[in-house]
Structure formats: C-alpha cells, structure tokens
Design a binder for these strands. Structure first.
Length: 502
RNA sequence: GCGCCUGUAGCUCAGCGGAAGAGCAUCGGACUUCUAAUCCGACGGUCGGGGGUUCGAAUCCCUCCAGGCGCACCA
C-alpha cells in the first residue's frame, strides 16, 4: 500500500508523539489545516496535563519540513498549518488512480444485488438496491479487491407461475387469475411470443445495464434448488409433524427454519437460501455481500446461521440493509405492490430525471435513511440536483484543458499560493480518507457529499483566478487536472457520468 | 409484545467521542469571462424529551415519546 501525503504526515507526527495520530480537517479555518487530539488522548496514560503535552508536541513538530506552524488550542488540541512545499508535493501525487488500491489483503468478494423476481420491470426500490450495491462494489474494486456482481432470480416459484398465468390470461383476452398481476406492463410482455419470464428477464437485463450496473453472473433459483437434495443430509435438521426443520436457533438465528413442506414435500425458500450460501462460499469467495431492503432485515441472522451450520465462518456473510423507498403521490403514500401495478418503475424515474440524477439521488442518502420519491416533483427538483453542479465543474475543467496553451506542471508552483488554490488542493488531499471510510463503512453516500465540496472549492477558484494565460498557468493546469481526476473518480464510483461539455 | 432503523435550520439531509454543517426555500448583490447549470452576502438550530458515562456527548449507555420496517410450512 502506497501511503499518501496525509498518511505520511500523520505517521511522522505519530512518531514524535509516540502514539497513533489521526489528523482531522477542522471546520474553522482558524484551527489550521489539520488538527489532532493526540495530547488529549494520551494525557491520562502519560499522567501529564493535555495542554502541557500539546505544547511540547507543538515545539517539536515544527521541525518537520511539512509543518509551518503549530498551535495549542482549547483543552489540548494541536492545530497545524502546513508549508507551501507540503501542499505542492501533495499535488504531484494526484493522478487518475489517486485514493485507490488501499485494501490489504485483497480479497475475492461477491456482491449480490437487485435480485428482483422477473415478474415486472425494475422498480425504484430495486433501483436503490442496485445504485447502493453497485457503488459499494465499485468502491471495493477501487480498493483493490476482486469483485463480482451477481443477480439471483427466481424462475420457479409461485409468484413466477402467477405471473406466467397472468400474461397468458391476457393473451387470451381473459381477466387475470385470482390475485394475479395487473400492471400495464403486462400488455407489452403479452404481445411478445414465448415464455413471459424470459421476456421479462431480457427487459430487466436491459434496464440494469442501462442503469450502469454490470452484472457478472446471473444465477437461477432452479439451478440452486437442484443442489438442495444432496445438501439436506449435511445439515443439522429434525423432523416434526412431517416438516423438515433446520436447527438454525443453535447457530445464532432466533428460531428454527422449515426446509421441506409437509403437505407436498416441496422445498421452502430457506432451503434454497442455504444451498445458495454454500454455493457462494464454495465458489471461493472470501466474502459474500448481500444487499437487502429493510423489509428483509430478518434475513441477516438466518443467512449467517446457514453459513455457521454449514461449517463456514459466518463473518464471510455480510448483509447490507438499506431502508425502503416510499412512493408518494400528491401527498399520499402508495403501497408499492408490483403485482397490483401500484409501483413506480426505474424506467419512469429515468424518463423523468435521467440516469445521472437517478443514480445520484438514490445513493446520496445514507442507507439507514428511508427515501420518499414523488415522481410528480422529481422533474422539478432535477433542475436543482447537485449532480449538475458537480458535473459542471468537471465540464468547466475540460474546457480549460482544451483551451490551455501550456502543459500542466505541478512543480511550477508560485512561491506563495493563493488561498483559493490552497483550499482546493487541500480538499483534494482529503479524498483518500473519504474513499477509505466510504469503503469500510459501506457508505457510498459520502462520495456525492465530498464531490459537492470539491466542486464548491473549484467553482470559487475558477471565479476569481484565471488559468489560461496567467503567470501560474502550468501550476493551475495541474491543479485543474488533479481536480478533474478526483471529481471523475467520485462520479464513476457512484455510476454517474463526467461530461466534457455541458 | 419482541427485533432492526430513524427523529439535527421552514423543507430534504450530512456529521456518529473533540471546536454545530450543506442543499433547497426566503431576502440582497455580481455576467465585455478559460461555460452565470457560476460566484458573494444575509436570514435561520434547547441536534425528539429526560437521566447517565467522559476532561469533553448530536455522536456511547439507559429510559420515555413519535415514525418506518420486520416477527408465515409466502417469496
């Protein structure tokens, strides 16, 4: 792992302090470029007053070439101002891969996402699953892991049969079966010949690809179910009143789960779940990530229990839960039932606001936060969507680079940096920390937030300082290019395009 | 009843042990420009209530209130 400028600085200060040092960016510029609380944290251990410790640190730390000035503040914070050279050197290391490749060790990780039944087009709910899961997958890839994205679809259950019957009824001009599917999309499927499930699956493949989610493998439930019979004897099971149960409560689940139905000996859903867990881990993935909506949060314990019962480390199963997307229409909540046609589909959302705004919007909230979508309002809000603010910064930079007369050169920095240059550059150096935390916490929503900050600093810089034709042209071009790298990476990690022109 | 998640500016949200933030909305300014989809300024908060832990709590613990989602021989 190649340490970046901020990490190296933290390590140097840590050596002097004799403790792990975390550098944080203070909100208030009066608190310096970076601040650290080492003195506060280590004072009890060293049995010295935090301020005294901080003052000693301040005296020693200014000997570092990176540190211009150090001040003690409050109860014992150490505020640091960095030298012009440190900032300029930091610019030199910002390339297209800046912030990536930090994972250690590299793992084989599978991310299973979307996995909606092929009984209708992709809903906005599944789109959130896709936007979130795919961004996590992209972060893991950027970190250096070998990531595969998989879509698991049900091609054999009761819902699928009901869907088939509903389409066939429509083809015959008859009303749908009891509790059948009634959405308008059935009409277009009914017009196509052949198995409606195949047609629906093709449509889903198209929509998922259009939404910039690239699925490596498509796994059929029937395929997994075929493995159940051979698997049953290996499980910890018992029979009660004709039903075969898995003793999952012994493995961390809150109750046992039925595997085989008593009436007709058919397999229940959990049987396929167990077989699928085994299938994933046997394929050699170090880690299997599930992306599930909050309505499935009860699955966490049973999936981990399934792994444990099979003799695998349950830590290899990771379940990401995101809160649901609620559809609001003129102030009223809709149920969101695909079967009853009471949903909003991804393709409608894309039609209203476009792919970029849709991906941005669905990923820019924390997964713990529910999302309300009012499609009537979506288009209106699109005009103000920050995604354009960020893309505009990228396009502006592309324009500058097109017009440039000289070549970017980070080393051609002036003796004194303008505060706007300095602020922008310092912002860029935050990127590796942002990505690292977003990856570890599976929180891609940090990326759009950070991208807005970068765009902010860039637009300010652009507004006040000339690049092309200025005395500092080479340096500013380098700064522009570095900014472009960081913005493009942020956008790519959430599946949004970085336009050259707008 | 039990479990998970959430209550922060008028609205939508970020921050999740260190020195309260953003966007939108509202009000007032800046275009002979490398793209005004931009910039500058103002307004705005007992961080749901109460207790506790800590040098320090929006952040951790307990409790109460409010909301969302689960708790099937459905998937």
């Amino acid at each position: 792992m190649r340490a970046n400028a901020v990490e190296r600085l933290a390590a140097q200060i840590g050596e002097i302090a004799g403790a792990e040092v975390e550098l944080e960016r203070p909100n208030d510029p009066a608190h310096g470029d970076y601040a650290t609380n080492v003195a506060l944290r280590t004072a009890p251990v060293q049995r010295r007053s935090p301020r005294e410790l901080a003052e000693e640190l301040a005296r020693r730390v200014v000997d570092l070439p990176a540190v211009e000035r150090a001040e003690v503040a409050g109860p014992g914070f150490l505020n640091l101002w960095l030298t012009r050279d440190w900032v300029v050197d930091a610019l030199g290391e910002i390339d297209a891969d800046y912030g990536g490749g930090f994972s250690e060790p590299h793992q084989r990780i599978q991310v299973e996402l979307v996995s909606a039944n092929p009984t209708g087009p992709v809903t906005v709910g599944s789109a959130r699953n896709g936007a979130y899961g795919d961004s996590v997958a992209r972060l893991l890839k950027f970190a250096g892991h070998a990531v595969e994205e998989e879509y698991y679809f049900n091609d054999s259950g009761r819902q699928v049969e009901l869907f088939r019957e509903s389409v066939e009824a429509r083809r015959r001009g008859e009303p749908p079966p009891e509790g059948g599917y009634v959405g308008e999309y059935l009409e277009e499927i009914a017009r196509q010949p052949g198995d409606p499930v195949d047609a629906m699956l093709e449509e889903i493949r198209r929509e998922v690809a259009e939404f910039r989610i690239s699925i490596d493998t498509w796994r059929r439930q029937a395929e997994i179910e075929a493995e159940v019979a051979a698997l049953l004897p290996k499980l910890d099971t018992y029979e009660s009143e004709g039903t075969v149960w898995a003793r999952t409560s012994e493995y961390g689940d809150d109750k046992d789960r039925p595997l085989v139905r008593s009436s007709d000996r058919s397999y229940l859903y959990f049987a396929a779940d167990v077989a699928y867990v085994r299938d994933k881990l046997e394929r050699g993935f170090d880690r299997a990530v599930y992306v599930l909506g909050a309505d499935h949060h009860g699955y966490v314990a049973r999936l981990k229990a399934a792994a444990a019962m099979l003799g695998y480390d349950p830590e290899r199963i990771e379940v990401l839960i995101y809160q649901l997307v609620h559809i609001v229409e003129r102030g009223e909540a809709r149920k969101g039932s695909k079967r009853r046609g009471d949903v909003v589909f991804l393709r409608e959302l894309i039609e209203e606001i476009g792919i970029d705004a849709a991906r941005w919007y669905l990923v820019s909230r924390g997964a713990d936060q529910p999302i309300d979508i009012d499609v009537d309002l979506a288009r209106e809000q699109t005009q103000k969507n920050p995604v354009y603010y960020v893309q505009y910064a990228h396009a502006r930079i592309a324009g500058i680079l097109r017009n440039a007369e000289k070549k970017p050169d980070a080393a051609a920095a002036p003796a004194v940096l303008d505060p706007l240059e300095r602020d922008l550059l310092k912002r860029l150096t935050d990127f590796p920390t942002i990505v690292l935390e977003a990856t570890e916490r599976r929180a891609p929503h940090a990326l759009p937030i950070f991208a807005i900050r970068v765009a902010d600093d860039f637009h300010r810089f652009y507004h006040d300082l000339r690049v092309v034709g200025s005395d500092a042209e080479e340096f500013r071009l380098a700064l522009c290019r570095a900014t472009q790298h960081v913005i493009a990476r942020c956008l790519d990690l959430i599946g949004v395009e970085a336009p050259e022109r707008m």
